[in-house]
């Protein structure tokens, strides 16, 4: 499945075949206008370099290997942080959704912590971890934790109690009930959490890398600013946009594969 195919539009908007390209009209038009504005001198290149210059800068960095290295470092940080924070959030969501006792014990505390913006912890995190890898991972994990926790909890709490009763009547054990009724019922909500979390993941990483890092895309942008390499700064921002889009598309592919029963994901 190509990147373009994986984007689901409401069925009414769906035209055969070509419609996958429709969504790229606006971004391409913006780039075209931007290029024209720069070439004609309408926008000074000190303010905004032309897309062709940005592409050239990207090509140079690609050849030197710096681009791939920095993207890889950022990607690695994002995924590991996401995995750590996501699994902990998922585990708490499960525990608090399934057990009243666990919910009573931890939910209030988690709700209090949730209301502290996690980026406000950056000074503290730098004091704790320095500008080490663990600082970035910690921040990403913390940011990702809450959307996954909240949506897993919500998903489990809102599974149709009539279905749970049905499962019990038909003699499902607790394990079967979870596997066949509760988890699939909570899955759509968990995916909402994952998509929120992916957004927060990039946001946190950019901020963390911009403030305190010695590698990664955010660092590359900050270095470029020091040397007034505005084309590299713009390039970094564009790469973030592309990576964010890629993460979102990946989650949609996964969503479609696992939620094929859901009327909203059924192909006609």
């Amino acid at each position: 499945m190509s990147l373009i195919d994986s984007i689901s539009l409401p069925r009414s908007v769906r035209l055969p075949r070509v419609d996958g390209l429709v969504q790229w009209i606006v971004p391409l038009a913006i780039i075209a206008i931007w290029q024209i504005a720069c070439v004609t001198g309408f926008v000074p290149t000190r303010v905004l370099p032309a897309p062709s210059d940005v592409a050239l800068a990207g090509w140079k960095l690609l050849l030197s290997g710096e681009l791939v290295r920095n993207i890889w470092v950022s990607f690695w940080r994002a995924s590991i942080g996401f995995l750590i924070g996501g699994s902990i959030g998922f585990a708490f969501g499960l525990a608090n959704g399934l057990s009243q006792l666990s919910a009573k014990l931890t939910d209030t505390t988690l709700q209090m912590v949730r209301n502290v913006p996690h980026l406000a912890l950056i000074p503290l995190v730098i004091l704790w971890f320095g500008i080490d890898e663990s600082a970035k991972l910690f921040l990403v994990a913390l940011g990702v934790f809450f959307p996954i926790y909240l949506n897993t909890l919500h998903g489990i709490r809102t599974v149709d109690p009539q279905l749970i009763e049905m499962g019990r009547i038909y003699g499902m054990t607790d394990g079967e009930l979870f596997r066949r009724v509760i988890f699939p019922g909570a899955l759509p909500s968990i995916f909402v959490g994952i998509r929120f979390a992916l957004g927060i993941m990039w946001l946190t990483l950019i901020v963390a890398e911009t403030i305190a890092a010695s590698s990664g895309l955010g660092y590359m942008a900050m270095q470029a600013r020091e040397f007034m390499l505005i084309d590299v700064v713009v390039l970094s921002i564009l790469i973030y946009a592309l990576l964010g889009k890629l993460a979102d598309s990946a989650s949609r592919v996964l969503e479609r594969a696992t939620l094929s029963w859901h009327p909203a994901f059924q192909k006609r």
């Binding site: 009539q162 049905m166 066949r180 899955l187 939620l259 029963w261």
Partner: peptide, 12 residues
């Protein structure tokens, strides 16, 4: 038992 609602698992 059979109920007024079918109570089918939508994901099965």
């Amino acid at each position: 038992v059979m109920f007024q609602e079918p109570r089918l698992l939508p994901w099965a």
